[in-house]
Amino acid sequence: MRLSRLTLHLSTALLLASGGTLHLAHAAATVAVSPATPLTIGESFSIDSQALKEKRHINVYMARAWDTPPDAPLPVLYMPDGGVAEDFLHVAGLLQVSVANGTMRPFMLVGMQNTQRRRDLTGPTDNADDRKIAPVVSGAPAYRAFIRDELVPEIKRRYRTTGETAIVGESLAGLFVVETYLLEPQLFDHYLAFDPSLWWNRGALPRQAAALLAKGAPGKHSLYLATSAEVGIASEVQRLSEVLEKQSPPGLQWHVEKMPEETHGTIYHPAALKAFRAVFKPQAPAAQ
């Protein structure tokens, strides 16, 4: 008798469990699944560049504070390595959080997506080791012409800007930033270079710095350099800083941030955080 009752209880339990499972499965099947939609951050457009003889893709993000009027003009930060799969997203996020927490003023980020990165960001070299990593080099003059003559005017045409400009880059993009300052200091107001590859062409750019600085016209600019523990980079940045100590042009505010706790692969984000707070800090309210 006890065995038959136990069998009955088990049968009933299995039947109820089966029925409950079927009921849940039926309910799940009838729930409408919300379709996924693209997540849009900023804007994108292309330029058919005459300087580069190719189409270039540009990404734009507006980092505004909650009380920044939507039509207020913004200063512009230009960035090589600016593709979505490159540095655009993490730098845009850093700008937004910095603007939101009040450690920097609102800015527009303009990212330039790469096609042939090592071509565009380098000058000439007679070093065989350089040519191993960059078979095509010396594209920096054409890339600078693209920025100066095509991209900057297009940004001014499309958006409301304040006239204040900056450029930021890391590694070979940092090399391009430093070279641009030494060759065309009037192109931007602020130059930010993190772990710049100043070893390029056996350190030719730091060796030429004194002569290039002597040719440059004085003007109000800032140059922010940051270095990790990368030996070949830190030593060349030190050489450049020694030149700046002796003959820094009038009006130039420059700074070297040594970050030995960082590597070449980790320096971008922490260096950018420090640089943005130092160079783009909010303006003090006018005295009443």
Rank of each mutant, 00 (worst) to 15 (best):
N127G: 14
G216S: 09
Y159C: 00
F280G: 00
A32D: 08
F276P: 00
T165E: 13
L52K: 11
M104F: 05
A63M: 01
A128M: 12
F276I: 00
V243C: 08
A145P: 01
D87L: 06
E230K: 14
F45T: 09
F176I: 02
L121S: 01
S4N: 12
Q116R: 11
L213Y: 10
T180A: 15
M79T: 02
A211C: 15
Q288R: 09
A128G: 08
F188D: 02
F146T: 08
P196F: 13
G42I: 00
D126T: 06
G111C: 04
P106L: 02
V177D: 02
D149T: 12
P80D: 03
T37G: 15
D126Y: 14
M108E: 06
V33F: 04
Q238S: 08
S171K: 04
R131K: 05
F45S: 13
L24E: 10
G83R: 02
S197K: 06
Q186C: 03
P69F: 14
E150Y: 14
P285W: 02
F107L: 07
K258P: 08
M104Q: 08
R105H: 14
G111T: 03
E43N: 15
M259L: 15
A271I: 00
A272C: 10
A92Y: 02
K258A: 10
P282E: 12
G102C: 03
E242I: 13
Y78T: 01
A272Y: 01
T227Y: 04
R157H: 11
A173K: 04
H26T: 07
L183W: 12
I58N: 02
S138W: 02
L212P: 02
V152T: 14
A229G: 13
Q96K: 10
W66L: 05
L172M: 12
S138F: 04
T122L: 05
Q116Y: 15
P153R: 06
A142N: 14
F45D: 06
S197M: 05
A100E: 05
L24H: 15
P141L: 10
P75E: 11
E245S: 07
P282Q: 05
A128H: 12
